[in-house]
Amino acid sequence: MAGTKTLGIMAICNGPHFLEKAYYKKLTLIGRKLGIRVFVFSPRHVDFEARQVTGFAYRQGIWQRKTFPLPQVIYDRVFIGPHYRQYKPFIEKLQNDPEITFLGRGLSGKWQVYKILSQSPELEKWLPETHPFSFVRLRDMLERYDAAVIKPMAGTHGRSVIRIAKSENKYEVSGRDRQNQPMQKIFKTSRGMQLFLKNFTAGRKFLLQPYLHLHTPDGTPFDVRVLVQKNGIGQWQTTGKAVRAGDKTSITSNLHGGGRALPLSDFLAEYYTEEQQQAIEEELDQIIEQLPPFLEEYHGRLVELGIDIGIDTDGQVWIIEVNSKPGRTVFRQINDQKARLRSLTQPVSYAHYLMKEHVGGYQAWNL
């Protein structure tokens, strides 16, 4: 192994069982062409004294369990969830190791990202009003808007995102529960609605935003997923764009909630005027150009971002969410082979660039 370039994919592994196996297999094969040995490991299976890790390498058509020296470069694919606390101390120890380079450090949550982006005069205009959830703020927002949305500060796939709408004699709560199943409830009193929300939000932190009408005229929710990644010369590059359209019974468009992916230009042409479409695409390009370097300047090194952008019924563009550990299923669904291939090759190409440049450790600014 001496002199071998190594890229460790850090993931939650329960023995040989781990998510995204097909993706990691492709990264392994791409790495092989660049002379990089790729393996998957859990941060809980690191022997820091021996500077070794037990993980899995894809060889001869199967995932084989082996012991490896600590990798030179780590690609973090540990998703924040209920079990993240068990892994956090080990992840931080790896991040602080001067001999290890992380392709990027994961973003810590929606509220932290919002606070960073709201410091940009250029990006601020695309950010919806956002606050940590409280009943006082919810009451105020329902007085100013026809409806509000709450979403977990740390969460994925549209789980636990709900809309609260107030009419003359009732409150309607709709969205997705913690199991990502559609839900709808009607309360005749403010107290009933508050008791439900108190139980629903118990033990977790939520954000509050106005409900934006991010749907087609027939009520189909949608957003635009943009994947941007660092390339083989260390620069940001747009990998691809696609629309994610959800089910009419849902308020979110996430693919895990039953959504589907569609080509962007065709979709915009169907629902917006030519003038609106041109303005929307220009704003998308501005966000793509400005957001990644600004976020990186405050947060520190990043490798890729999934930027979710909403477009309301008036053609107004909104930055909905930024994810540092994005999926790439949309490009397979819309049959964009160029974007799909680039989405797979870029992380390994960027790792190869960092190895050539001998960039060490993790660099952060203004933390």
Score class of each variant (00 low, 15 high):
Y145E: 13
A50C: 03
R163Y: 03
I116T: 12
S120A: 01
W111Q: 12
F48N: 04
G158M: 06
V73W: 08
D140Q: 14
S174F: 08
I150H: 06
T54G: 04
Q119M: 14
V40K: 00
P132S: 10
I116S: 01
P82V: 07
Y145M: 12
L123H: 02
V173K: 04
E99H: 11
F135S: 13
V173I: 14
V40T: 00
A50P: 01
K88I: 08
V46Y: 00
D47R: 07
E49Y: 13
Q72L: 06
Q86L: 15
K93S: 08
R85E: 14
I164R: 04
W126E: 02
A148E: 08
V46L: 04
A148K: 04
P69G: 06
P121D: 10
K115E: 15
T67P: 00
I162L: 11
A154T: 13
F41K: 00
F41M: 10
Y114V: 01
V113K: 01
R105L: 13
E143P: 03
Y75G: 03
E143M: 12
A165N: 05
F133T: 06
G61F: 09
P71Q: 03
P43M: 09
I100W: 03
T67I: 13
L142H: 12
F90T: 00
I162H: 05
Q72T: 01
A57H: 06
Y171F: 15
Y171Q: 04
D140F: 05
R77L: 05
R163L: 11
F102L: 10
A165V: 02
R77M: 02
K166Q: 13
R59C: 05
F68P: 04
F133G: 00
V78G: 00
L117A: 02
E129L: 14
S118D: 13
K151T: 06
P43E: 11
L142T: 11
N96V: 00
V161C: 06
L142M: 13
H157S: 15
Q112T: 15
P71K: 03
A148W: 09
I162V: 14
L123I: 08
Y114W: 07
L107F: 04
Y114C: 00
V78M: 06
L142P: 08
N169V: 10
D140S: 11
Y75M: 12
E172F: 08
E49W: 10
S118R: 14
Y145N: 14
G175E: 09
V73N: 05
E122C: 05
E172Y: 10
K151G: 02
R85Q: 15
N169M: 08
F56N: 01
R85D: 11
L142F: 07
G158D: 03
F79G: 03
Q52D: 09
E99Q: 12
K151V: 03
A148H: 09
Y114H: 13
Y145S: 10
Q64I: 12
R163P: 01
E99W: 02
A50T: 02
G55C: 02
R59G: 05
K125D: 04
A50H: 09
R144W: 08
E92W: 05
E122W: 10
T130R: 07
G158E: 07
S118Q: 15
R144D: 11
P152R: 01
S118F: 05
R59Y: 08
G155Q: 13
S42E: 03
K93R: 15
T130P: 05
G104M: 00
Q95H: 13
D97W: 00
R37T: 14
T156E: 10
Y145T: 04
T156D: 07
S134C: 11
